[in-house]
Design a protein around this nucleic acid. Sequence first.
DNA 1: ACACTAAGTCTACATCTGTAACTTATGTGA
DNA 2: TCACATAAGTTACAGATGTAGACTTAGTGT
Lengths: 147, 147
Amino acid sequence: MIDAKNVTITDSEWEVMRAIWTMGQTTSRELINAMDELQGWSDSTTKTLLHRLIKKGAVEQIGESRPFTFKPVVGEKESMSAAADDLFDHMCAMRAGSTIAQVIKTRELSKSDIEELQQILAEKAKDAPEMVDCNCLPGKMTCEEDS
Amino acid sequence: MIDAKNVTITDSEWEVMRAIWTMGQTTSRELINAMDELQGWSDSTTKTLLHRLIKKGAVEQIGESRPFTFKPVVGEKESMSAAADDLFDHMCAMRAGSTIAQVIKTRELSKSDIEELQQILAEKAKDAPEMVDCNCLPGKMTCEEDS
DNA sequence: ACACTAAGTCTACATCTGTAACTTATGTGA
DNA sequence: TCACATAAGTTACAGATGTAGACTTAGTGT
């Protein structure tokens, strides 16, 4: 299984992946139609993206006779986590908390999602530091306070 | 004040912004040195990025005589939130929860960060839905279960 | 066996990004 | 006031991305 960590999915490709992940398995026709409906893309656009994804190892083609079938090679959860990690990696560590807070506020979460998060937080609270250092500049420990 | 929502910051630009936000206000020399130390970039690279950021309205140049000063126009928190929102916007809504969970697990959070998150979650738990719909394909309500 | 159509592959091309060299202008010490 | 060190601005250029047209190949109905 290819590690999502090693596959960088661009914005447009992401849209394709979402469709593929949701369909689980699909033919190019189905996918092309879905992307047309979802994004108004021409056939070629979807085909190109699909091929780039195959080349990257995010999707694979199966079957030997022509209407081939395509299925995801990288997992959705793993890819999402990898993307989120990537994002937080280039943000100031000191502010990750408030960013997460903002995300939680604006996203819809189910009861069980919330319970899971509470569970994780309770665990994490046990040995949480008083403060997180700013890792933006060498020697700098804290950022200015935000406006 | 320019809305961070309307300014798209690329990866390299992000690195520059972090430095600027942390310095609060800076001269190009200071910034160039910081970026050299942090990323090993040549002077020109930093200058180009700085100018692109000015053109985008993320940074502004102040002062009239030469060693100019630069300061951020968009806020760090807002930019981070906008970037996070952007990310989650093109992910399956159904899986936002597990992605957030993963982020919380891997990031360092301070005691007060954790308390804030717990606070928000408690509030949110009050009217949380049993389940979040998958918004990936028209008509599809749920994704396949993850591997 | 053959034309036709759908599927699959290649090519294209403008724009965006990452990275940096080259050029011009300007404050300052001699 | 003149040369020089610095700061600022301009140009460059390869590779990634978004988007799509053109071309090729292979099942299929007659």
